[in-house]
Amino acid sequence: MLRPLLALAALGLAATPALAADGEQLFNMQCKMCHAGGPMGPSLVGVAGAKIAAKPGFNYSPALKAKEGTWTDANLDAFLKAPTQFAPGTRMMISVPSEESRQAVIAYLKTLK
């Protein structure tokens, strides 16, 4: 009974690099224009697991500055799904409606160190 579960777990681990690669493609098409570290949005290098709105050198909205916690998978997912619901008053207006796309982007963000 344990072997099928181990096989499924191994498949999940094997899919992670592919998921991150899909996320990189989505990021480059939809996010990179604003998140290249300029005035529009902060660089997202190291964002996964970091404190929310704490990257030096970027003027975050009061809405994000008021958020507590870190950019966990759940927080990144909620923010990407509906930025203005996650942090009412945020300047980010672009959402990622597809759960599959959000998971791919999050997997990619976790590779940015």
Results as ranks from 00 to 15, higher is better:
65 K>M: 11
40 M>D: 09
63 A>P: 04
56 P>S: 11
61 S>G: 13
92 M>F: 05
59 N>G: 07
93 M>Y: 10
90 T>I: 12
74 A>F: 01
85 Q>C: 00
63 A>H: 07
41 G>C: 07
91 R>L: 08
86 F>T: 05
47 V>G: 02
84 T>E: 05
42 P>S: 04
91 R>Y: 05
69 G>V: 05
75 N>W: 02
39 P>G: 05
69 G>D: 08
79 F>P: 01
52 I>Y: 02
79 F>G: 01
82 A>R: 06
85 Q>P: 00
36 A>W: 09
53 A>Q: 08
67 K>M: 12
84 T>Q: 13
84 T>F: 00
61 S>M: 15
56 P>M: 09
54 A>M: 09
55 K>H: 14
52 I>A: 02
85 Q>R: 10
91 R>E: 11
85 Q>N: 11
38 G>Q: 07
84 T>D: 04
45 V>S: 08
74 A>G: 00
58 F>T: 07
50 A>G: 13
55 K>A: 15
64 L>F: 02
91 R>P: 01
40 M>G: 03
61 S>W: 12
79 F>L: 06
48 A>I: 03
74 A>S: 08
78 A>Q: 11
82 A>S: 11
59 N>S: 13
77 D>Q: 03
92 M>R: 04
59 N>R: 07
62 P>H: 04
52 I>D: 02
81 K>M: 12
73 D>A: 11
73 D>K: 11
85 Q>S: 15
71 W>G: 09
57 G>M: 12
59 N>A: 15
94 I>M: 15
46 G>D: 08
76 L>M: 15
49 G>E: 11
57 G>Y: 09
61 S>H: 12
65 K>G: 00
65 K>E: 08
60 Y>A: 11
85 Q>M: 10
86 F>L: 07
64 L>M: 15
